[in-house]
Every structure is written in C-alpha cells, then in structure tokens.
Design a protein around this nucleic acid. Structure first.
Length: 548
RNA sequence: GCACCCGUAGCUCAGCCGGAUAGAGCAACCGCCUUCUAAGCGGUCGGUCGCAGGUUCAAGUCCUGCCGGGUGCACCA
C-alpha cells in the first residue's frame, strides 16, 4: 500500500462514517498522510480527525475513533490507533509494506513519475547569461536547478521546453565589442568595458580567424560579431559539459529584426496600455502592481530593454506555451513587478501564465574563505572552475540541494571529498552498494525473488517506507518548483536507510555459509532501492555509478 | 526610504502549503571491521526556531511591527 492508496483508504473510511450517519461532514478532497517523526507513532499518521472535528461538532478524539473503526477494515492495514489530540496512527501489514518492491521493479525507470502536470506546455527559461564573459557561478545555480526542475516537470507529465534567452542586442554587447577592440589594439580596457584574461583570449581567437579584422571598414563590428559567437559557443559547450542542453537558444536580436517588438507594442497600444510622455513611449504598469511606469521606446527612438521582454513573452505565448517560467538571479528580483505587470497588460494571469522564480546568490568557499569575484576586474569564477574543483556530479548536487530561496555557501573542499561528509558521495555510495550486492549475487548464482513477507526487519521496514515516498516527493518538488526536496529525500529517506539496511541485514553468504531464505527477497529490495536512487539522482542530473 | 529573500544546535542546512517530545550532516566525545565496499554504522552532547505582539483547539510554519544580513530599486542591458 502506497501513501496515495492510504490517503484514498482514509477518505473511504470518512465516507463510510458519513454514510452510516456517525459523522455529518463533507468528505475532504485531500487528506494528509505523513510519516510520523517518532517511530512509535506507527508507519503513517493522519490528522484528518483534527481537521474535521469542528465541522463534525464533536471532539477530535471522538471523530478519530469513528474513522479508526472504519479504516481498520481496509486491506493492508494492521492497526489504527487514536493518539494525542486526535491523530490516527496507522501500521501497515507486512505484505502491504513490501508491496512497494514489485511496484518499483515493474515500473523501473518510470517509477516516481506522475501525471499531475499532464497537458501543460511549459516554457522554462533559465541561465540566459549574457555572452560578454564566461558563465559565472550565479548562472550556474540556475543551470543545475533549472535543468532539474525541467526533469521534474517532465516526470509530472508536462511538456517542457528548455530555453536560453541570448542577449545579443544592446549596449552591453557594444561594451564587450569595444573591450575586444581595445585589447586587439593593445589599449587598456574601456572605462565601462570588461577586463580579464578571457577578453584577451577571445581577441586572439578573433584575430587568428580574421587577421585583417583591425583594418576592416568597421573593426568593432567584426569583433562584436565573432566575439559574441565565440563567447556563446564557449558558454554552450560549458553547459553541455555540465549536462545541461537547451531546446531553444533564442536570440534577442531576432525580435528586433523580425518586427516582433513593434507587433507587441501595437498589441499593447490596442489594449490601451501605451502612452507617450517626454518624447518617450511608456507602458502603463503602475495600475497592474508595478511601482512605476516603464519606458518601452526611449526618447532617442531606440527600444528599451523591456521591449524585447514584451515581444519575447508574447512570442512564447504564441508558440503555444500556456505557462512561461523564468528563472532569475536575486540581482534581478527588481524585475519581477514589471514582468508580472507586463503579463497582466497582455490580459494574461500573473503567477499562472507567467511564473518568475528568483534564486539567491551562491558563494564558493575554499579553505574557509569566500571566493570574491568581479566580472569587471576579470576575476570570474566560472562554471569550468567549479567543475574542475569538484566535478559535474558534485557541482550539480551542491547547487540543487538547497532551497533556491536561500543563499548558499559551497565549500569546495567538502564537495571534492570522497567520504560520507559529502552528501553526493553519500547518496552515490548507497547506489553503488546496491549495484555491488546485485552484481555479487549474480556471480554467486543467487537470484532475486521469493517471499517478500520475509522482509520484517526494522531496517527493511524503514527502507520500504522510504521507497514508497518517492512518487509524492517528485510530485511535490515539481509543483513547488523545489528540486532540493528530491536531494534531501534521497539522503535522509533512501541512502540513509539503505546504508543501515546494508549494515544490519546481510544478504549474501560469506565463505561457505548457507544461502538464507531472506537472500532472495532482500535482493529484490536492493533492486528497488537501486532503481529509486537511479531515478532520483537522474532527476537531479547526477549519475548513479555502478562502482565508486 | 521602498521592494524581494534569509535569520532554526558551535558550523552548513532541512522542516512535506498550522499538528503530537523541533530534524539531518559536520564538529566534539564514546563504541562497532577475520570474508556481501568500515569510502560505512550505532550512541552521547548540543536549540527561549532573531525579538515583541496577534490569529488558532494547535504557530518554526499564517498576520503586524521592530532588529540583523543579502539583493535590487535608470529613457543600462
């Protein structure tokens, strides 16, 4: 019996009480079934009686007793106890507990998926770093979290497009181009430009491919075009090496060249959201929750940055995405208001058609000291630096393991370690232990199988309960857009339990010992455990090695 | 000044859209290896959940105010 099935059983029990007249309440749509913190409180607990007490007009414990009597009749339930203020503590029958094992094995790589987001077409935009330098650590957080979220949403049945908005238009690119040109001429970086070794490297590469660049009619344009291409290719490659690939790389320039910006403004003009003042064209966003109106066409006639966003949003909607999700760093939190207002201006519903997720900043820590970086000064800590220091798996896991709402410190020394201090190692080690038992069993000719009813050890129960949680962890992580929940789950409810199971429940015979009857069922449990660890790590974009 | 995020054990962080004695890892201390990976496991120690009010049968979780830290507030992109 899974938690979901238990939830249904609880609702059935409540309905039975309503039908037999002992409770007069409406049966709740959903009931909460959770694993109690304290083991003595059983396998699962529900607060349904507490929640219904007021409506029922009876003391919570009385309501609990009525529901308990019905719930106790359900298949797979061993005992139901009324406890504390009115909780129901449920203990499952052994075979109901173990039924998760064949379910996991039958589902295989699809175990944990759900269809709660079925039918949704989601455009997930993340990273979108400007091609004016190597991708830095802030963007890297979104690479790991965004890609994991994409996987989670897909596991929930959504159709997901990963998209990268490539800002190849505007004054930052001009500054980048001027910086390259200055470097080529051997001049110092412009006041408002970029410095750093990477500028000289890009310059050298442009010159290698175009030796006559400096004598071209418009040298800056040559450096702009080829420099941006090279930078962008480098970013793409770094992300690819990090296991993150996008379905669409969208060029801001295309919006300006195709007339999409004008069309978007025309649309807003027709909706009465546009006005002119001081020689500029404005979008009235204040009456849609923004703190000031926004200039969309500057008085010099050039479109302001936001006009690209307007056109881009409209373009995504016209491409058929009913949900547009944008992940931004904390340094862009000030944009949320205007983007939401923009969404509303088009007649869409902020928070539904447009979702904006803000991720707080990341500090890398080495030898206990935070590594300070500055793009201007050229001391950039890049994605490649992170990968070089700790590897792809540890890098992704470290970034995805904490809530995006929290600033995090990533201790490079810790994440490079190959001990259980390192969370990703700990989880991967559990996965390799599973692989190793299964491998050794095969070598010994011992096949998984047999009576799952033999799985009665407390460590086995704990692991079974943990495995059964996976589907709802996935569903919840996707709904809340919080991939870190998967990581925490794998650590606390799967890897931990698996390590303990390993420690207390020997599977294979040592030396010339006999093969115990528990060997087959325990191998099945290890198979299921391996699958959940593989699937869970897979959702985070982290490998589940066969051996360490 | 305004907006957003954070403030939970010495440290790094969880806490399942309010629930039963607040959890994990690290650090400190004590245990467990003659054969399935000890790259591990068990135990002890450790918290007025920033502060003050409020809502509730029930608040770390919701509301208000304050304090502290981070980020951002352009006709820049």
């Amino acid at each position: 019996m899974t938690p979901a099935e238990l939830q249904d059983a609880v609702r059935v029990a409540v309905r039975a009480c309503v039908d037999n007249g002992s409770l007069s309440v409406s049966v709740p749509e959903t009931v909460v079934v959770e694993r109690p913190k304290v083991k003595e409180h059983g396998d699962y607990a529900t607060n349904v009686a507490l929640a219904l007490a007021k409506a029922a007009g009876k003391p919570p414990r009385d309501v609990a007793a009525l529901i308990a009597a019905e719930l106790g009749k359900a298949d797979g339930i061993d005992t139901v106890e009324v406890a504390g203020p009115g909780f129901l503590n449920v203990r499952l029958a052994g075979e109901a507990l173990a039924s998760v094992v064949p379910a996991v094995i039958a589902a295989g790589s699809s175990f944990g998926t759900n269809d709660r987001a079925a039918g949704q077409s989601i455009n997930l935009e993340f990273v979108s770093a400007n091609p004016t330098g190597p991708i830095h650590i802030g963007g890297v957080r979104w690479a790991a979290v965004g890609d994991a979220l994409a996987r989670l949403l897909q596991a929930s049945g959504a159709k997901v497009t990963r998209e990268y908005y490539f800002n190849d238009h505007g004054s930052q690119i001009d500054r980048f181009a001027r910086s390259l040109l200055a470097s080529a001429k051997g001049e110092p970086a412009p006041e408002d430009g970029y410095g750093g070794d990477y500028i000289h490297e890009i310059t050298a590469r442009v010159l290698a491919e175009h030796p006559d660049a400096l004598s071209a009619e418009d040298p800056q344009e040559v450096f702009r075009q080829h420099g941006v291409d090279l930078m962008f290719a480098e970013i793409k490659q770094a992300l690819h090496d990090f296991g993150v690939d996008f379905d669409v790389y969208f060029h801001e320039n295309s919006l300006h060249e195709s007339g999409a910006v004008e069309r978007a403004l025309e649309r807003l003009r027709n909706l009465g959201r546009i006005y002119e003042k001081d020689g500029a064209v404005w979008l009235r966003t204040t009456d849609l929750g923004d703190d000031k109106d926004r200039v969309v066409i500057k008085s010099d006639g050039d479109p302001a940055y936001i006009s690209g966003d307007l056109a881009y949003y409209l373009d995504k909607r016209e491409r058929g995405f009913d949900r547009v999700v944008i992940m931004l760093g904390a340094d862009h939190s000030g944009y949320v208001g205007r983007l939401m207002a923009m969404c509303a201006a088009f007649g869409d519903e902020p928070g539904v058609n447009l979702e904006i997720l803000i991720g707080q900043l990341v500090n890398l820590v080495r030898d206990g000291e935070p590594m300070r970086m500055s793009k201007r000064a050229g001391t950039v800590i890049s994605l490649e630096d992170l990968v070089e220091a700790v590897g792809v798996d540890a890098g992704r896991y470290a970034l995805v393991r904490s809530s995006a709402d929290s600033q995090i410190d990533i201790d490079l020394d810790l994440w490079a370690r190959r001990t259980s201090d390192n969370p990703v190692f700990y989880v991967q080690y559990a996965a390799t232990r599973a692989a190793s038992v299964l491998r050794n069993a095969r070598d010994l000719g011992i096949a998984p199988g047999g009576d799952l009813g033999l799985l009665t050890h407390p460590r086995e129960n704990e692991l079974l309960l943990g495995l059964a949680e996976f589907p709802r962890v996935v569903a919840q992580a996707a709904e809340l857009r919080e991939p870190h929940r998967v990581a925490r789950y794998l650590e606390e409810q799967v890897a931990k339990s698996a390590q303990r199971f390993w420690d207390d429940c020997q599977v294979l015979p040592k030396g010339d010992e006999e093969v115990l009857p528990t060997a087959g069922p325990r191998l099945l449990l290890w198979q299921a455990t391996r699958i959940v660890l593989e699937n869970g790590l897979g959702l985070l974009g982290v490998s589940a090695p066969e051996r360490m």
